[in-house]
Write a protein that binds this DNA or RNA. Structure first.
Lengths: 246, 246
DNA sequence: TTGGCGTCATAACATAGGTCAGCGTTTCCG
DNA sequence: CGGAAACGCTGACCTATGTTATGACGCCAA
């Protein structure tokens, strides 16, 4: 059974057995468990490890002096938090757990030894980094231009595609541990308005939510309604366009 | 006289004469001039070159099917548009010129030859990439949480610090070629509201604008008003906090 | 078993920012 | 040099989203 990370990187390139073994090795080194709603890295810290999400959901978030908070990224299994982060002197954001999370802490030395011996993996990690940056740009567009309805729809579709890429969907359903507050912090909306808007999505038959599990009954319509364009996820090795049924 | 790029990277690490020479070399290879308001890379293109801004201002922008546009990054001299971008199959955004722009087009081979022979430069380029990502996160926070007044203030302060880092400020003044529409597209506001808000900034003595040149007469107050925290720019080699008078 | 807390839900009301429309000024190009 | 387009500015009005408040439900810890 393939690791989420392997699945993730194979979207970019075929890996050899040895490549996979190397990834497996760094995933097993120092594994840490983080309780829900706990931060594992804080703004101002000196970064020392790269973190790889093995299980659970997390997020990257930033806070303004008066307490306004923005979730700037959501992490699911197979995501690296910050490749090469140790080049920076201080963290400029926090990394927190949403659910209980298992993460691998990877030291600079371990990282270097992989990149020195496995060029294919190194490339795949670069690719991962470029995709993270692309997602961040799309989020800027999301909060900058889309309406509340579109923003939340877009977030749902993005999560669907990303989860599917690491084998964490069943049909059009997936575990969805975000509270309405979380969704608000990720989309720049208040919880109250998230509530109103999700109600509308439900009414329109674009979303079902039951006991922390989401279903997107009409993905094509949701993609349309949220002006979702999967290009930025760079999920397909050949640069083709994905459609909802692939 | 040092190149903006060299100045930029020296914020991260001291470079040797040879390192500087290598940077100089890639800056001189294939230089292209782009007219104002022209795109030099389009969404959907297959990326072939890394671009380095030598002169002028540019931006990265994304468009929704109905025409809403978001500027997701602003480029000034010394900025790379997309290191390693050729790992992706298609561009997911556009790169355009704001003013007349001179850019160096750097091929994958040229890039590889630098990274293979100059580890210090390679690290510095990684650092550049991490900082770009940090800026992108801050922009997400900016449009997600700050008010119009804060957003525009924040943008001004960011540009001030970045321009200063490459020697393009004089006192608290700098060339400012953005139209109010541009500012709107960068901050997720309409031009009308940008106008109102900049008027207020002027009234409050935080901004002066004359013939495409901006002055920030009271930087400390503007930093405060926009809740600007320079950490994310990672400008200081030692991780100290910068203040406005450094 | 109870009580407290987190989450979802909804209603009434407030406002930041959007929309539309119009006018002057500057810039640029033919 | 002249005309058109781009840009900046302003006013009147509108609406998407924020604010405040309150209640119901489920879950966990004492």
């Amino acid at each position: 059974m393939a690791l989420p990370l392997t699945l993730r990187l194979e979207a970019f390139a075929k890996l050899s057995q040895d490549d996979r073994a190397a990834l497996d090795r760094i995933s097993r080194g120092s594994v840490r468990e983080v309780a829900p709603r706990r931060d594992l890295v804080r703004e101002g810290d000196t970064p020392r490890f790269v973190h790889l999400i093995l299980e659970g959901w997390g997020c990257r978030h930033k806070t303004l002096p008066d307490g306004r908070r923005q979730i700037v990224a959501i992490f699911i299994p197979g995501d690296f938090c910050d490749l090469n982060i140790y080049l920076l002197k201080r963290m400029d954001h926090n990394i927190g757990a949403i659910t209980t999370m298992r993460v691998a802490q990877i030291s600079r030395d371990e990282m270097d030894s992989v990149t020195e011996t496995r060029p294919r993996v190194t490339q795949a990690l670069w690719w991962h980094e470029l995709v993270s940056a692309a997602v961040q740009r799309e989020w800027t567009l999301n909060v900058g231009q889309r309406t509340a309805y579109e923003r939340i729809g877009h977030l749902l579709v993005e999560l669907y595609f990303r989860l599917r890429a690491v084998g964490l969907t069943e049909g059009h359903s997936f575990d969805f541990p975000l509270t309405q507050s979380d969704v608000g912090e990720a989309t720049g909306l208040t919880p109250v308005h998230v509530n109103r808007t999700m109600k509308e999505l439900r009414k329109d038959g674009l979303l079902e939510l039951e006991r922390r599990r989401a279903t997107l009954p009409d993905l094509d319509r949701l993609i349309d309604a949220s002006m979702f364009n999967a290009t930025y996820l760079h999920l397909d090795r050949e640069g083709r366009h994905l459609d909802a049924n692939d």
